[in-house]
């Protein structure tokens, strides 16, 4: 048998990293700031994810919610939704966890330069988008308008309230928030995120739209953007799939012939239209 000469890779060894800060964002979401050992740099692009693990509790994909401009530290925003994330929520500053990655393609930020950017974020979808928002704001002069649409169920679920306050004050950011189920104190807009789209005045030919949110949201947002005549080529989506390996082997993340962990999670909309099981 001929020799199989390849640079073999140990794909499943996590890098043991340290939590340097924890912030409770909502009842169910925390932001963890992570440092790799020896000041290593994660070297990620906005929109990429890492596989986070805690021994005994398994591993799960978590998107990076900070911009590369924050390196060497990076943020993970995690909803307490399962065994691993529940354990993670009980970790404190100084605790260790395993990190593999970064995985996936991320946003092609260079294609966005000079353009107006419309960020459409539903619920926890603000976390991955924030890596891109932060990047754009850190390089503000490279981009045109920055419009952030954020829709979430209730006011108590609003993520990153500190940043949101900053964005509100920032004259170069247009921010619209809509709440599905408001409480008596909510004074802002009410309704699903798609209601924020029709009133927008956009130079559609020069606008890049990104969509990240729960699976049910995509169809409706895409319809609303179509209504505004945003060209398909200007739309990017980040898709959620079950990811077990992150390295294009385990098969869990596959949409037709495409591995979301490798060729995604960020997809150009024209590509998504060819995939039949995507949205």
């Amino acid at each position: 048998m001929e020799n199989l000469i390849f640079e073999k890779k140990d794909l499943y060894n996590p890098i043991i990293s340290t939590i340097t800060n924890v912030e409770q964002l909502t009842d169910t979401e925390k932001r963890f700031e992570i440092a790799l050992p020896e000041n290593q740099i994660l070297n990620h692009k906005p929109g990429q994810f890492v596989q986070v693990s805690i021994f005994g509790f398994g591993e799960a994909p978590i998107s990076i919610s900070s911009s590369p401009t924050k390196s060497p530290l990076f943020d993970l925003t995690v909803r307490n939704a399962g065994r691993l994330t529940d354990k993670m929520h009980r970790l404190t500053v100084g605790s260790q966890l395993g990190v593999r990655g970064p995985f996936g393609n991320g946003f092609e930020v260079n294609n966005f330069k000079g353009k107006d950017i419309l960020f459409v974020c539903g619920g926890i979808g603000l976390a991955p988008t924030k890596s891109l928002i932060d990047y754009v704001l850190a390089n503000r002069n490279d981009f045109g308008r920055v419009v952030i649409l954020y829709g979430t169920k209730s006011p108590s679920e609003i993520l990153f309230s500190d940043e949101i306050e900053k964005w509100k004050k920032d004259k170069s950011v247009e921010l619209e928030i809509s709440i599905d189920r408001p409480d008596e104190n909510w004074k802002g807009k009410v309704g699903v995120i798609t209601t924020l789209i029709p009133p927008l005045k956009l130079d559609v030919a020069n606008t890049i739209a990104t969509i990240v949110g729960p699976p049910v949201m995509y169809k409706f947002v895409l319809m609303a953007l179509k209504g505004k005549r945003v060209p398909d080529e200007n739309i990017y989506l980040s898709l959620e799939r079950r990811m077990k390996c992150g390295v294009g082997k385990c098969g869990h993340c596959q949409i037709n012939d495409t591995y979301v962990c490798q060729d995604g999670p960020v997809f150009h909309y024209p590509r998504v239209k060819e995939l039949k099981e995507a949205v």
Binding site: S53, A60, A81, P215, V216, R242, G251, H252, Q254, E277
Partner: peptide, 23 residues
């Protein structure tokens, strides 16, 4: 940390955390 054979014919194979199942 162990890996096991899995199969795309099994119901939960493509299910994500929120319960959405793409196949």
């Amino acid at each position: 940390r162990d890996r096991f054979w899995d199969g795309c014919m099994l119901n939960k194979f493509a299910e994500v955390a929120g319960g959405e199942n793409f196949r």
